[in-house]
């Protein structure tokens, strides 16, 4: 098993750092899947992390100037690692004016993802900072746990308003309630609602638009014969939603959410080559 990658370009480095920061905000530990063409950051819906799950996909070509990997076997040319994204985020934080950043899989005191940062210095030679991030190599028999989640059979799919606006709304609501109701219809309307014994607050968004999902079989049937005015709603943990919105350092070009009534809310954030999916289960 071998992996080494190199970033030379400052813009790529910044972009990569922002993606990692976003992920670090969403997951304490996550799985990094490496394939010859792509990197995936995966959080499976374990009860321990409140049932949320995440799937983030980036193609390596857009970030790395050099990317070599060798999986366990030729027919399974992949590597699965478990790591704390916070560590990676910390390692990259002070690398912003680096000449090069190398990331490689090493075996030091334990398996590590070593981030070696070459920084300019006053002296003739440059300054090298290495961060050894402990990782756990996930054996092949467990790989099946990290499959890409399928798009759920949703009731309503809707584009999200500007995330910053949504964030400030949710942040204020968070002071009043622990859970939030997200509801939307096929008429491009979405409401964010909190209801407590003392106060009910609703923020209405309209003209958001509903994304045209390409039909691939029966999954869209439920939405097609749906009354465009009827709201589909799900009540979720407000902290989880706030986490997603607050962590957004990558300004997505497209953001949408799919609501499965009373079951789950599925967010998709798209920014050029970065594709982030986030699932928040509905509260009972």
């Amino acid at each position: 098993m071998r992996f080494r990658a190199k970033i030379l370009d400052v813009a790529c480095l910044n972009h990569f750092t922002r993606v990692i920061n976003t992920i670090a905000k969403l997951a304490k530990t996550c799985t990094l899947r490496l394939t010859p063409g792509k990197l995936y950051f995966i959080l499976t819906d374990k009860v321990a992390n409140g049932g949320v799950s995440m799937w983030c996909e980036l193609s390596q070509g857009n970030f790395f100037d050099e990317f070599q990997m060798e999986g366990v076997a030729a027919e399974h040319n992949e590597i699965y690692l478990e790591l704390m994204p916070e560590n990676l985020s910390r390692a990259l934080k002070t690398a912003q004016n680096a000449k090069t950043v190398k990331i490689k899989l090493t075996n030091k005191h334990c398996p590590c993802l070593t981030v070696a940062v070459e920084l300019p210095s006053l002296a003739s030679s440059s300054r090298i900072v290495t961060h050894d991030i402990p990782v756990a190599v996930i054996p092949r028999r467990l790989w099946n746990d990290f499959k890409e989640p399928s798009v759920p059979d949703f009731d309503v799919s809707i584009y999200l308003p500007v995330l910053k606006t949504m964030k400030s709304v949710v942040e204020r609501m968070k002071n009043l309630s622990n859970s939030i109701v997200i509801e939307a219809n096929l008429n491009g309307e979405m409401n964010l609602k909190i209801e407590t014994d003392l106060v009910s607050v609703t923020t209405h968004f309209k003209d958001l638009g509903n994304p045209p999902w390409v039909l691939d079989g029966d999954s869209q049937n439920s939405t097609q014969d749906r009354d465009p005015e009827t709201m589909a709603e799900a009540r979720v943990d407000i902290k989880k939603l706030q986490q997603l919105l607050a962590g957004q350092q990558v300004n997505p070009t497209k953001a949408l959410c799919n609501i499965v009534s009373k079951r789950i809310v599925h967010f998709i954030l798209l920014h050029e080559d970065v594709y982030l999916q986030y699932f928040i289960p509905a509260l009972a």
């Binding site: 030091k108 402990p134 756990a136």
Partner: peptide, 14 residues
Amino acid sequence: SKTMVTELCLSEDE
């Protein structure tokens, strides 16, 4: 296996 180790090298001429 839980702690990230950061090491920084400075050359003598710094």
